[in-house]
Design a protein around this nucleic acid. Structure first.
Length: 1053
RNA sequence: GGGCCCGUAGCUUAGCCAGGUUGAGCGCACGGCUGAUAACCGUGAGGUCACGCGUUCAAAUCGCGUCGGGCCCA
């Protein structure tokens, strides 16, 4: 049984009901089981970090995933859809630290690492549960009962196994490197964890005294005075020329060495009054210089260092052209240092404070606060040439926002820079949506790939499974828990710190190997997701069956993140990309394109949208707002629009239900094949359109052009279904007998709605399910239990008729033009017109059996299609051209003009055409009229109103006849009675009695001709029409129709 | 400094890959429709398709450059 539905589309109620139904019937599980053994579609979920709240971007991300998975499932794929959770790492440590008011690692150690880990774990698990509920609310169907979690032993093993592989392939390396260092978190952080924003720093010019030359200095520039104590060299560009100048300031002179092109600007910075050029030095000559450190007396570590000048390509023609090199504090500095064999001097500890190597003056000072001291000390020693402030982009720890520093520390690296070419090759084999995400953006990132620092000096993470022997330096990487148990004889319940720290292994040399105390960079966790999610390495069978992933999709920030980390990890362990296709999507921004942030107060919670509008509306909105790979500018207005659109769909769905129920529409009547001979052209048209729609949606879906899908579906619903087809079939639904014409319309709209419920199922799963349950399951209890178990509908090609679609498009255009023309002459659509004339300019108008439709929609008695170029009979207008008449007829010009005004234009034209001139007689005089004295124009006659359409013009003949007027008045009366029925809240099938009193006799006579028609249209069993009638009934109203008072009384019988 | 993306009506955008009359929605004004009705439709006003140069019979679309915005990198 089909049942009637609520008046308004109430998404919340509907979604709650459907959610409950799915829950009770275990629908999700059944849908997936339904496809077991079919073609495999391995999707890997990029694990969201367990922050506790999903934001709009996360919601969008999961909606995209869910829509695609539902689509694949309908297309008979056995879908792997394990969701994931990224649960380790600094963000959670920072949150837990905050909750206890901890300020440093020392606080954590004092509290107890075991308890701290426990808190982190509890925190992550709680957040995961909260977020799961939010994802479910969006209708995201994934395996929520069995997600992969990075904190599970099994997952940790996947990371261990991968590192062991890297070690076996000789890609794991320990080394002193300059890394991004967060002094607060006291750990190395990855390039991808550095957040840049503007910061104002010192900008100083320092003079380094040249050895063996009196009062001579190399001038360098830096924004980090605190790195001066660690200076070991100066770099110059091998292609630059340098100058030695004598410069005067405050009555004294000194000799300065600066890149030639920059002398003027540097001296200006230093406020020198004057200077003279002493000579130039080539880069080669520069490299022969030695200098002494400007703070040599303060920094004892500097005593043993030889300071020289070296060539480096990275030196640019900015500032002084001489670059201060501190290999302990800069990436390029370090690399230069390595190349040139310089000391890697780093007098700064992990806490960001100077060590004893920096000397008494600086020891214990936090480097970012020591800038002032360094400047002061330089000034005291007359080594400061100038100082100022500079605003520039500076890196910060992405979690605690502390400015990062560069320090040289000992870390573990994956040597993936060696794999660069292979990675590029793999990237080109992956299918990217859009194409440039891979070929341009990602490839560019990989081209700049450096070795991956995977070690972090923290607690809450996957422990590095690297054991080293303090005695002989032997290294062993453990791949699984079982292997660890075998090697150590200890079985660990939990593989996290601190338990694992206590495990010692025997070294072949007889010593005891200890675990390297670091944990993994959290990016490494998710990097192994594609095999960890398959329970690899413990379950190799699943890996064989599923890996690599068919599809992943994430935001464009993941270019440097998960797309990359997965590729890196997969390259070291399997030598290939772990995914076959990638859809890169955008960011969610506010309606002005700004990032959503708490400080601006423009954050929109997905829950807020769901509560106001419903999950389907949020889903349909985010999918359709723009192309997936572009940033989404969230707009409440646009959500409102989406809501309105789906409400129209709801109304369209609801429209036919009462009639169908009334007519006991059942499975036997739903069979379209029975009505082949009764289908009208418009039925065949909408069936063609809906099948074309299937084609469009399928084609867009195969390219993940999600926005086009939403557009196609919306257009179909609004334009084809609601604004057109339903309008066309309304009269047929009012027929009261078992009429094949009516049943054909029912069967057609049924077919259309059921098809829509299927093709919308991936995108608006709740609404689709609800319609499907009513229309399909309501008639056939043996139909698949859920719309999501149905197969994706293939287009029925035999129903697609492009000619018919084109003709209907034309009919719509002509109807619009006709109503435009009516409006020009103020003739309402309710009033029929005699004729509509279609006059195409060039192309034939092919109405393809749609003339009745056009007649009905334009409310006209006759349709005439002219052949191209042909015009309806036009009225010729003629205007006198004064400046041509005047010179010829002089004093009589006025008379001539007047005569032309009343003359017969067509007669004049004929004379002109035939004889080249015309003659006008006024009184007894004759005047000659030449062609240039008049201007002709063709106008439609008074009774025709014209409007343009794409192929030409449409003319509406608005001549009134008594027949037309009679129909017009009757329709006016019908509409008002219908309005009153509505007011009394009557049901469609209710019968009424009606009395209509019309105060004007002529109009009454006109209406009288249609008495029977009016009575039947308004279902009046008793109907009186007259003048001076007594009005009775439950509802009596006075109306005014075309200036005439009409009083109507109706009552339910 | 480099890479990628974006720039179309007051706002949000479609069209761009595949060159051939820039199309919608919101808002505004006027009109219409009415058994889907707290809905809907039509018409109007509003576009140097960021700018410049080039390719072409033809450029919003392709190429080069400039400017502005975003993301990422250095």
């Amino acid at each position: 049984m089909i049942t009637e539905v609520a008046g308004q589309y109430n998404a919340q109620d509907l979604e709650n009901r459907i959610r409950q139904m799915w829950e009770e019937a275990q629908t999700y599980r059944k849908v997936r089981e339904n496809r077991v053994g079919k073609r495999k579609f391995f999707f890997v979920d990029g694990p969201p970090y367990t922050t506790g709240r999903i934001h709009l971007g996360t919601a969008w991300n999961k909606v995209i995933k869910d829509s695609i998975l539902r689509y694949k499932s309908m297309n008979c794929f056995d879908v792997k859809d394990r969701p994931g959770w990224d649960m380790h790492g600094l963000p959670i440590e920072v949150k837990v630290e905050e909750s206890f008011g901890f300020r440093s690692k020392r606080d954590i150690e004092a509290y107890g690492v075991d308890k701290f880990i426990q808190r982190c774990k509890e925190f992550a698990l709680r957040q995961k549960d909260d977020m799961t509920a939010q994802f479910k609310m969006l209708g995201a169907w994934m395996d929520w009962d069995d997600p992969y979690m990075t904190l599970k032993n099994e997952y940790i093993e996947a990371a261990w196994w991968t590192l062991k592989k890297a070690h076996e392939h000789n890609l794991l390396e320990r080394g002193l490197r300059v890394v991004n260092w967060c002094p607060r978190c006291q750990t190395a952080i990855a390039d991808s964890e550095v957040e840049y924003w503007d910061e104002t720093d010192y900008s100083i010019y320092v003079k380094f005294p040249v050895e063996g030359e009196e009062n001579t200095y190399i001038v360098i520039w830096t924004t980090t005075p605190w790195t001066i104590p660690a200076n070991v060299a100066v770099a110059v560009n091998p292609t630059f020329q340098y100058s030695k100048v004598r410069a005067w300031k405050d009555g004294t002179a000194e000799e300065l060495i600066i890149a030639s092109d920059l002398v003027e600007s540097v001296l200006k910075e230093g406020r020198y009054k004057d200077y003279e050029l002493l000579g130039t030095l080539s880069a080669k000559e520069m490299q022969e210089l030695k200098y002494t450190h400007p703070l040599q007396d303060l920094v004892p570590g500097q005593k043993s260092i030889k300071h020289g000048v070296y060539a480096a390509d990275f030196v640019t023609a900015e500032n002084t052209g001489c670059v201060h090199i501190a290999p302990g504090h800069g990436l390029e500095d370090y690399e230069l240092g390595l190349e040139m064999g310089l000391d890697i001097f780093c007098p700064v500890g992990e806490d960001g404070r100077y060590t004893a190597d920096a000397g008494e003056r600086y020891i214990g000072k936090y480097v970012k606060e020591a800038d002032g001291d360094v400047i002061l000390d330089l000034e005291e020693r007359s080594k400061l040439l100038a100082q100022g402030r500079l605003t520039h982009r500076y890196g910060h720890c992405w979690r605690c926002k502390t400015p990062i520093i560069f320090i040289a520390t000992s870390q573990w690296f994956l040597r993936i820079s060696d794999l660069r070419d292979k990675m590029l090759d793999e990237v080109s084999k992956v299918t990217w949506y859009p194409e440039w995400a891979g070929s341009a953006r990602f490839s560019d990132w990989i081209n700049n790939a450096r070795d991956w620092c995977i070690s972090r000096q923290r607690y809450w993470g996957i422990p590095l499974p690297i054991w080293t022997c303090p005695a002989c330096g032997h290294i062993e990487v453990i791949g699984t828990a079982a292997e660890l148990e075998e090697r150590s004889g200890q079985k660990l319940v939990d593989l996290h710190r601190p338990e694992v720290d206590a495990v010692l292994l025997d070294c072949p040399c007889g010593g005891k190997m200890k675990r390297s105390p670091d944990v993994f960079d959290v990016w490494f966790d998710s990097a192994v997701a594609s095999w960890a999610t398959l329970h690899f390495p413990s379950d190799e069978k699943q890996f064989e069956e599923w890996w690599p992933a068919d599809f992943i999709t994430e935001g464009h920030d993941q270019t440097r993140g998960w797309f990359y980390s997965q590729l890196g990890a997969s390259m070291v362990s399997f030598g290939r990309a772990p995914y076959k296709s990638v859809l890169m999507h955008g960011f969610t921004l506010d309606d002005q394109g700004r990032k959503m942030s708490k400080s601006i107060g423009n954050v929109v919670q997905p829950e807020e949208v769901v509560q106001k509008y419903g999950a389907d509306i949020l889903r349909f909105y985010v999918l359709g707002a723009n192309a997936p790979w572009e940033d989404l500018h969230f707009s409440w207005d646009a959500v409102e629009n989406t809501s309105r659109m789906l409400n129209i769909f709801w109304n369209a769905y609801r429209f036919a239900l009462p009639y169908m129920i009334l007519d006991k529409f059942d499975a036997s009547k739903a069979d379209l094949s029975k009505y082949q001979s009764s289908l009208r052209a418009e039925d065949r048209w909408i069936l063609s359109r809906v099948n074309s729609l299937i084609e469009e949606v399928t084609r867009s879906m195969e390219q993940y052009q999600l926005h086009r899908i939403v557009r196609s579906i919306s257009d179909f619903i609004l334009e084809d279904l609601s604004r057109w087809y339903i309008q066309l079939i309304r009269p047929r639904t009012w027929i009261e007998q078992e009429d094949p014409d009516k049943l054909a319309a029912y069967a057609t709209i049924y077919e259309v709605l059921v098809t829509l419920s299927k093709i919308m199922a991936p995108f608006t799963p709740f609404l689709s399910e609800s319609i499907y349950q009513n229309l399909v399951r309501g008639l056939d209890p043996n139909a698949p239990q859920s719309v999501h178990m149905c197969s994706w509908p293939g287009p029925k090609k035999e129903l697609i008729d492009k000619r018919l679609e084109a003709s209907m498009a034309l009919v719509r255009e002509i109807s619009e033009a006709a109503s435009n023309a009516r409006q020009k002459k103020a003739r309402k659509l309710r009033w029929p017109v005699l004729e509509i004339v279609i006059a195409p300019c060039k192309d034939d108008v092919d109405l393809d059996n749609l003339e009745p439709v056009l007649k009905g929609q334009t409310n006209s008695k006759k349709i005439t299609v002219l052949s191209p170029g042909e015009k309806p009979k036009m009225k010729l207008e003629m205007a006198p051209v004064h400046r041509k008449i005047g010179p010829v007829h002089k004093g009589d010009a006025k008379l001539v003009v007047e005569a032309l005004r009343i003359a017969d234009a067509s007669k004049i034209k004929r004379q002109l055409d035939e004889e080249g001139e015309a003659h006008l007689s006024i009184g007894d005089k004759s005047y000659t009229i030449t062609r240039e004295m008049v201007q002709f124009s063709e106008l439609p006659p008074e009774n025709l109103s014209a409007a343009e359409f794409s192929l030409g013009f449409v003319y509406v003949d608005i001549t009134l006849t008594p027949e037309l007027e009679s129909e017009g008045y009757s329709r006016e009366i019908i509409r008002r009675i219908q309005d009153m029925r509505k007011e009394l809240d009557l049901r469609v099938e209710d019968r009424i009695s009606a009395v209509v009193d019309i105060e004007s006799k002529p109009i009454l006579d006109l209406a009288m001709r249609q008495k029977e028609h009016i009575a039947s249209e308004v279902r009046a069993a008793k109907f009186e029409l007259g003048l001076g009638l007594e009005l009775k009934g439950k509802l009596v109203k006075d109306w005014e129709i075309e200036g005439v008072c009409v009083r109507i009384g109706i009552d339910l019988i």
